[in-house]
Design a protein around this nucleic acid. Structure first.
Lengths: 330, 330
DNA sequence: CTGTTAGCGCCTTCAG
DNA sequence: CTGAAGGCGCTAACAG
């Protein structure tokens, strides 16, 4: 708990010299430097970053707003964020909001009160839903959706969904169920558009009865399964909007006596690690989760440092992955 | 970006009065309070917490050191930490160390330089392995092991492991494989002791050939499966030291033509959400993950505030959960 | 109840 | 190359 003054005293130089020895060693004579370093060693001095940052008017930390950190996809995005942040000397403050706007607002205060320099938002932007981006708060959306009114990094959700559905059609399916997220969720919206476009291209009419809304949890996938199982005119394949719901759905279908994939194909979205360990392994779309985090952070950093952004919307490539949950329809 | 001085000017009172109006409103006259609040409103004043904390010599944040945030069990513990921290007005700095001691040390610096007030360590303590607890850094271990040389919150790993194995023995198994973590991992050590004690009680000799070391990932569970599958004298049940390895192992066994649980029973550890969605659903031990996080944080807070700890080791109850992966041996 | 004053630890001119 | 001095935004004595 020693401070710069104590170091200067022990070293027999001024405070300014100690400060310079730390920040601009080349501007200090060899002898002075040696004395300072010896003194630092002796009194176990560590500069107080709070004081330093306080002057710099920079906290060197950012807040990550995430609806649920127990969601594996989010956790992986956060790894990427954290990795990029550490490289740039920034810390990551975790804001697990549990889908509460009130909590989001609490975390926003950290920026307003200068405990953090900006916000990385993992929840997709919903127009009316408060916490509109404010001019003076640097904020970037990552793994979000189209029409985000502030800088964002994402994949082409509609395109990816379309590719999946097109593939299912190619495997011989005509009745394809959709396991979506909540009705107003932007990811649901974008991916549903991709689904409908793919059907349209194949001249398959859109049947709203085939749509079930979940909430991106395995539990909701399980519930959805019983719905599909009870249908008079069952789909032969299900396009689930994330892997967790797909996994829950598989269990539900199996326990209803429906074999997967023999009686019903199913696809996921995200490619979390469990996707390849489910039975059957899931055909899915891999989002570049860590990359979304890394690029999201770097974009936010540009914003914080007041640079001009080259692009306010970055769209990263996804990868379509075929596994055993979607054999050709015989 | 206005400061307290501007507020005092607009309100026509002194800086001290503004400060008091914020921290001790009861010590300020109604009229002054009203003027101050109006001025705050008018100039959109938000106190600069960096300055405030700087004086308070407290960062009001802690660092969570976690080997891998993409591990669902850890993610859940972190939820608990974050929840408790938010209630007490603390922020959580994420330290995903990716099993690197160097990274851990980097994060330790945040405390030394006063950007954080303490450390919550999720990695179990390994004696020689550097980053020994230092006297002046408040540090608490959560979800760790026995013999942690600083305050800790955990479950009785050996007891839980013993209970699982005892149950398997009760189901009729005599040859029980162990899918452990890395050899020197403290969790492996404690849980293996429980396994051996349970065997001993049932007069079953310990056979080291039945032990396979993984690294707590699904991938390592998959590898282990091929080992078990190739054994001349296969076990009839496998005690896996976490759910991920169990899930990976199940897939490996199945693809080797071994049916689970008909040909081989298997158990997990932790009760991550996927445990109930695996096929078959896993018999496992539920750790009170969020509670471990919450109590871990509160313990750390006591340490930070310099209170005397009532107990330096808190052992929380676990719950043994039977699912379909362990039918009675016929 | 209110205002004045003195720092917290550090960095950065500005003279020497 | 070095030292003295001022100030970042805020709080906490201390007088009035």
């Amino acid at each position: 708990m020693s401070n710069i003054r104590e170091v200067s005293r022990v070293a027999g130089v001024s405070i300014a010299t100690v400060s310079r020895a730390l920040s601009h060693p080349e501007k200090v004579s060899k002898e002075a430097l040696a004395k300072v370093n010896a003194a630092i060693e002796k009194v176990k001095y560590r500069p107080n970053m709070m004081a330093r940052n306080f002057r710099a008017v920079r906290a060197y930390s950012i807040v990550v707003l995430v609806p649920n950190i127990s969601n594996l996809f989010f956790a992986t995005v956060i790894r990427g964020i954290e990795d990029a942040a550490q490289q740039k000397g920034y810390s990551v403050l975790l804001g697990d909001t549990r889908d509460s706007i009130a909590r989001e607002r609490d975390y926003t205060k950290l920026v307003e009160t200068r405990q953090a320099d900006g916000i990385l938002q993992l929840r997709p932007h919903v127009p009316g839903e408060s916490l509109e981006p404010e001019a003076d708060i640097p904020m970037v959306s990552t793994c979000g959706c189209e029409d985000t009114p502030y800088p964002s990094v994402r994949i082409d959700n509609a395109g990816a969904a379309g590719e999946i559905v097109q593939y299912l059609i190619g495997q011989g399916h005509r009745r394809i169920g959709v396991l979506a997220g909540l009705r107003d969720n932007p990811h649901s919206r974008d991916r549903l558009r991709g689904y409908r476009e793919a059907l349209h291209k194949a001249d398959i009419p859109y049947d709203p009865d085939l749509l079930v809304n979940g909430d991106f949890t395995m539990g909701s996938g399980l519930m959805a399964a019983s719905h599909f199982a009870r249908m008079k005119n069952r789909p032969t394949a299900i396009f689930s909007m994330n892997d967790e719901m797909a996994i829950g759905c598989i269990q539900g279908l199996k326990s209803a006596g429906i074999r997967v994939p023999e009686d019903m194909s199913i696809t996921g979205f995200d490619d979390i690690e469990f996707a390849r360990y489910s039975d059957p392994p899931l055909t899915t779309v891999a989002q570049p989760a860590e990359e979304l985090g890394r690029i999201g952070f770097n974009t936010l950093l540009e914003l914080i440092e007041g640079q001009e952004l080259q692009q306010t919307e970055t769209v990263l490539p996804y990868e379509f992955i075929v596994r055993k949950s979607t054999p050709a329809l015989s």
